[in-house]
Design a protein around this nucleic acid. Structure first.
Lengths: 152, 152
DNA sequence: GCAGTTATTGCGACTTGTTGCAATAAGTTG
DNA sequence: CAACTTATTGCAACAAGTCGCAATAACTGC
């Protein structure tokens, strides 16, 4: 387990409770699994397999519902990557929460903090949308794909 | 039909050919349908129903494959909206191609051009990602939801 | 316009994701 | 800590989306 993960886990449980959400076995487990793999984009398959194996059978629908809940709370961000389906990633206390996805090859990159700050700053002009827990996704063409097919 | 849509349709077919893609009946039809409803976010159900009704039975998988193709080429952008599932929207020659999605209530807004330009400008600093055909999606909390639940 | 090449289609089987509902258990109150 | 309230679960049926493969039909060049 990543050092400090235990603390984060407790923090997130507290956060859930502060949002009037109940802390249930499936939620504890799912949260722990996401935290233990916070550096990766998780596929639904590995999540479901883990949940099914750990719990005496966590139902598919509960897992989906909780992923949706966590996303709504800004704990994770789900994204569809061309070629590898939907992925779930921990973002809660991340400084940088934006992604570049190449529409052509499906490769994704995490952005750098400087750009994220600039985008946040640009958003200051837009009223009605919160900067807190903001995620930004860019869809475009990476340099490699643009080279191969200049029109794209 | 929207005035000028016919021209756009021809343009897009030409664009497809320029990309070495073949122009088939399902593609013509799907493209036309998307163009005729370019001001809305289409659900997969209405797309499939239309395709199935028009063609002597356009297969589900072909529709999905073509939607994916069109998205890769930057003709449409698909997005998952909480509460209403995945939606498909025409973006090809749009000046503004970014969306604000509220994680809490699922409401979405189109952004204004000024912000889009600023984000594009910020992207100039990032090498390796094309500005052409860029789409940007913001996930956050709208003012209304933020008011109801300040922590979000 | 015909033959050849190969992208695209349709099909079937499968995986992923959603929804309504009754049963359960988390949190709360006295 | 027992009773209460209601969010969450598991289940089952369904809808949405994916994949491999053989058949088809767009495009190319002659």
């Amino acid at each position: 387990m990543i050092p400090g993960a235990m603390k984060k886990h407790q923090d997130l449980l507290a956060f859930l409770r502060s949002q009037k959400m109940r802390v249930t076995p499936p939620r504890r487990l799912l949260l722990q699994f996401i935290l233990d793999h916070s550096n990766r984009r998780l596929s639904i398959r590995e999540i479901q397999e883990f949940m099914g194996a750990q719990l005496r059978k966590a139902d598919r629908s509960s897992v989906y519902r909780n992923l949706e809940t966590f996303e709504r709370l800004g704990i994770i961000q789900s994204l569809s990557f061309p070629g590898e389906g939907r992925r779930y990633q921990y973002v809660f206390d991340r400084k940088v929460r934006h992604f570049y996805i190449c529409r052509s090859c499906g490769k994704a990159n995490r952005g750098d903090e400087r750009l994220f700050r600039r985008v946040e700053a640009a958003l200051k002009d837009i009223h009605g949308f919160a900067k807190a827990n903001l995620s930004v996704v860019f869809y475009g063409a990476c340099s490699k794909c643009r080279k191969n097919s200049p029109t794209a």
